[in-house]
Simulated assay, not measured.
Amino acid sequence: MCETARATDLLDWYDRHARVMPWRVGPAARAKGVVPDPYRVWLSEVMLQQTTVATVKSYFERFTRRWPTVAALAAADDGEVMGEWAGLGYYARARNLLKCARVVTHDHGGRFPDNRDALLTLPGVGPYTASAISAIAFDRAETVVDGNVERVMARLFDIHTPLPAAKPELTQAASQLTPSVRPGDYAQAVMDLGATICTPRAPACGICPWRVPCRARAAGNQADLPRKSPKTAKPTRHGIAYVAQRSDGAWLLERRPPKGLLGGMLGWPGSDWSDAPAPAPPLDAYWHSLTEEARHTFTHFHLRLQIEVARVEAPTMPSRGAFLPAERFNPSELPTVMRKVFDLAHGALENLG
């Protein structure tokens, strides 16, 4: 089967089965001339990095209600954006989100560049994101390869090279199929195929539009692909978090440095999650050690945090951080690991009276 026929079969399937996404212009609307908003395409692609569609939907809807345009996002307060991002993880994305919005607004008149090379000059926009925006927002024939597409290509071409070494080979295979007609719809169609039909486990080959040309299906090994290199065991790091609440209800918080894990996010004063000696408490108080630790897993390591809690009188001057009034404190704006600390510490502080 030729590449054109494969693309046509997939697009026919997509026209009937495209997933409905809050950031997507569906094939029927696109056929009527509705053009995708590059801002919404870019925002969704940044949010979807390392994050599931189910998780992203609510974040995307809140972001676009609050900041409906790239100019509105560019003018937003950094802390408010980081607060809205809390829970999505990979916080460097949020910092780059603001940088990119400001570059687009101030240097490009509020309009995203319409080609891959120019998009690559924007902060936080890498090869995948540039290709996705170029194809989906501007209908350019760029090859878009995410995890779903890698899986589809590994099976379609029966590629046994394990990931991540197979990435160039899989991208080359995908580039052979990218059509010049409806490339934006095609890019989303391949991702939808991987997400709904060519799934990691128990692929539904019987209803797949590419079941005939699929080499892995013919060989009977589709469920074994793509192969993956063994993962190295993640190390475990330890740290300490100091949670202090003042008698007037205010909480002691500090904003983390702009670079590094959880950069720019609010959190509890504590250690830097290394083998260095634990820092002194941020203020003099009677600290209570909790028996339960806050546990969290990052991309490259597991973290276990010892929690120390204290109730203090007002006014109190800490050596680091600042007290945030109770009416301005929203636990949901904390990154996930800091929210885990809060959930454990809050109950303990209530018991202290």
Rank of each mutant, 00 (worst) to 15 (best):
F301Q: 13
G249S: 06
T291V: 08
S271Q: 03
L334D: 00
P315A: 10
P281W: 13
L266T: 02
H302N: 15
R295N: 10
R211A: 12
E292P: 01
T291R: 13
Y242I: 11
G263I: 07
Y242N: 13
L290E: 08
R215S: 11
E327C: 05
L334M: 05
T336S: 15
L283P: 00
P226F: 14
A241W: 05
A223D: 15
M265G: 06
S271D: 04
L262S: 08
P230L: 12
W210I: 03
P315E: 03
A322P: 00
F323W: 01
H238K: 15
P226Q: 15
T291N: 04
F301R: 09
T316K: 01
M265H: 03
Y286L: 09
W287M: 05
V212H: 09
P209R: 10
K228F: 11
P277E: 12
G263Q: 03
L262V: 02
A244L: 06
G220T: 09
V212P: 01
R339F: 04
P235M: 12
W251Y: 14
L324G: 00
G321V: 00
R328T: 04
R256P: 03
T336Y: 00
R256D: 04
K259A: 08
A218L: 07
C208Q: 11
Y242E: 04
P209Q: 11
D224I: 04
A219F: 03
K231H: 15
